[in-house]
């Protein structure tokens, strides 16, 4: 199966094995060596990855913001492409999203902000 990496993978919606959203493909990691075809190994998610994609003047500010806001600090979260179950409108990954670090920010916002507001 032919894949256009930028058009078909980058910025696509990622879902876990239940079909629940994990985020979008913010970055793609490729293993490169000079004498073998490069391989796409992981998808990256996170503010740090997103910040690096912007024009330079914005990068510093956004990286700082991401660092301050992200509960796990700066390191991006990686999902291995070998766990892809389905490549289509969304990319389905064979993991349990409820415990995945991809949802850490969502859980943080839920526990520290939303759950403290009555009626949530």
């Amino acid at each position: 199966m032919d894949i256009d990496v930028i058009r078909d993978l980058l910025d696509k919606q990622l879902v876990d094995r239940e079909g629940e959203p994990l985020g979008r493909v913010d970055g793609i990691v490729m293993a490169y060596s000079a004498d073998a075809p490069p391989r796409i190994t992981c998808f990256e998610l996170g503010a740090q990855t997103l910040a690096r994609r912007l024009p330079r003047p914005f990068q510093g500010a956004l990286a700082w913001l991401g660092h301050r806001l992200s509960p796990r600090g700066s390191s991006p979260y990686r999902l291995e492409v070998s766990r892809i179950i389905q490549l289509g409108r969304t990319i389905k990954i064979d993991i349990d999203g409820t415990r995945s670090a991809a949802r850490e920010t969502e859980r943080w916002v839920r526990d520290h902000i939303v759950a403290r507001i009555p009626g949530s």
């Binding site: 979008r24 969502e106 939303v114």
Partner: peptide, 21 residues
Amino acid sequence: QGFGWKWTEDARPRDVARFSL
């Protein structure tokens, strides 16, 4: 939708925390 978070107006706010925020 742009960041790929869970979104719906039909769930309890705690289940779609960032969307509600």
